[in-house]
Computed example of a mutant assay.
Amino acid sequence: MNLNVQDLLVLHENVNRNVGDERLNNFYLSKNNVDILSSLSKLIEEQILIKDNSLEVTLNKLIIKDLKTILKNGELTVGGTKKDLIERILNNIERIDDEYLELTPVYTPTAMGEKLLEETKYVVHFEWGYNNISLPQAHEIATNQIGDTHLDKVVEIYKFEINRIYKSTPIDNKLITLYRGLSEYFKRYKNDNDSARMYYNLAYYLQIKITLENMESPMSSAYDVYGKFSEERFKSNLEPIHFREAIYEQLIFIEGLSNEHIYDLFTQDVSHYYDLDKKIFKYVIDYLIAYLKKEDDKEAFSKIIDLIKSEYLIPKKERDAFKYYLDEDYYREENAHRNRQTIKTNINKLIKEDVNIEVEIDIDTGEIVWYIEEDELKKL
């Protein structure tokens, strides 16, 4: 069969649509300049689709108003459900003018097409490529790596890519995206809360683990330009992302599990893949639960910060060296040629002279820095 993955996406996008009403605005197909009509012709040549103009198929594509118009032409009653109307037309076809029965053909799958649609349902899930698996990659994995399987191919594609990356780099940001994507799929499409929770826990663990490991470098985003540990930046890494709050809300509000039980599940899920630093992650899970319950999370967060400051931060000497590099070596070198000059003014004068002022605010400290362009200075 001479079909590529783009042809398969065209198939899924256009099956059971009227000829002339093809789906031409699909994001992936448009972005890749796919000739959709040519793909449809190929699908017909391969006997995957046919342009079906039988009344049994085409009448189903009409709205009730159009069906009633056909019935009125044959002087037939127009009451009942859509199914009733179609059956009445088919049973009284000789009473209706042919011009009312010249309906638009429909792209209808053959038996081989139905089988192919079932086998390639995964293409719709991966067409956006936002989960680190592109559509061509998903198709290659499905075709050459996992082979013919009765299992859910979306799940098997995720698992294959997770295992491939995990074997070489168990601590990898790419895995966070894959764990999240599979978690979301189990939650939204499989109604499998246990699997959704497990892969969410893996993503959440890795998110925190990578943050903690990054603290071993003075270049880490956990430190500001002066080498000071930023609690707020770290706190942002503890918060759940998007829909995934629903996974823990299920455990907290629906199942009514205790903090200890939820932590035991977290430990059970993560320990299959990673060695767990149980002390800090016990505090992390307590914080996550307090956050989602909209309770005071300050105590839980303080325990995390105290532990980080005692066991995870690099020595102050190393951070101070980084600060010196930034403050002294870099800024001194950049500004050595400048002679500092100042002028004195006040806010009222700035307003009166309509001076344009730019303001930069440090989101961690609240420090405000004011900037005035050279042209604006001339007004003073």
Results as ranks from 00 to 15, higher is better:
Ser230Leu: 12
Arg95Ser: 10
Asn25Ser: 13
Gly74Lys: 01
Thr143Ala: 09
Ala336Trp: 08
Ser39Trp: 02
Thr365Gly: 04
Ile93Lys: 15
Val369Gln: 10
Asn237Val: 00
Met112Asp: 14
Asp297Ser: 14
Glu45Val: 05
Asn131Thr: 11
Asn91Ser: 15
Leu29Ile: 13
Met215Asn: 10
Phe234Gly: 00
Tyr287Ala: 02
Lys228Cys: 05
Lys42His: 08
Leu40Glu: 08
Ala321Trp: 08
Val355Asp: 04
Ile50Tyr: 03
Asp327Cys: 04
Ser302Glu: 12
Ser168Pro: 04
Ile70Met: 00
Glu249Tyr: 14
Phe126Asp: 02
Asn2Arg: 13
Tyr291Leu: 06
Ser39Cys: 13
Leu238Asn: 00
Ile347Asn: 06
Glu299Met: 11
Asp269Thr: 05
Ile347Val: 15
Lys349Asn: 09
Lys121Trp: 09
Arg319Val: 02
Leu85Pro: 03
Ala111Asn: 14
Asp327His: 04
Asp275Met: 06
Glu295Pro: 00
Val5Gly: 05
Phe281Gln: 01
Ile368Cys: 04
Arg23Glu: 12
Lys31Ser: 12
Ser41Trp: 07
Tyr325Pro: 00
Tyr330Ser: 11
Phe266Gly: 03
Leu101Gln: 01
Met112Asn: 15
Asp269Pro: 02
Ile357Val: 15
Leu178Arg: 08
Thr143Val: 14
Asn2Trp: 10
Tyr274Ser: 01
Asn173Ala: 14
Ile343Val: 11
Ile372Val: 15
Gly366Ile: 09
Glu328Ser: 12
Asp297Val: 07
Phe322Lys: 12
Leu175Ile: 13
Leu90Pro: 08
Asp296Thr: 10
Asn214Lys: 10
Val154Tyr: 06
Arg338Phe: 13
Lys153Arg: 14
Thr267Cys: 07
Ser195Ile: 02
Tyr185Ile: 00
Leu103Met: 08
Pro109Cys: 04
Asn2Met: 08
Gly80Lys: 05
Asp35Arg: 02
Glu156Asp: 06
Ala222Phe: 09
Val284Arg: 04
Lys121Phe: 07
His12Thr: 01
Phe281Cys: 06
Leu24Pro: 02
Gly129His: 14
Glu161Arg: 15
Ile308Trp: 03
Leu3Thr: 12
Leu202Met: 10
Val78Ser: 12
Phe160Arg: 05
Arg88Ala: 06
Ser39Gln: 04
Arg23Gly: 03
Tyr185Gln: 01
Thr143Trp: 10
Ile351Phe: 05
Ile314Pro: 01
Arg95Gly: 00
Val19Gln: 09
Lys379Ser: 04
Asp364Thr: 10
Ile63Lys: 11
Asp224Tyr: 12
Asn32His: 15
Lys167His: 13
Lys378Ala: 03
Lys293Val: 01
Ile347Gln: 12
Val359His: 04
Glu46Ser: 15
Phe160Tyr: 15
Asp306Cys: 07
Leu292His: 05
Arg180Glu: 11
Gln207Glu: 13
Ile208Gly: 01
Asp297Trp: 07
Glu46Phe: 03
Leu135Thr: 07
Lys316His: 14
Tyr199Gln: 03
Val284Leu: 10
Glu255Ala: 03
Lys309Leu: 04
Leu212His: 09
Leu71Val: 06
Tyr179Asn: 08
Glu255Asp: 15
Val284Gln: 07
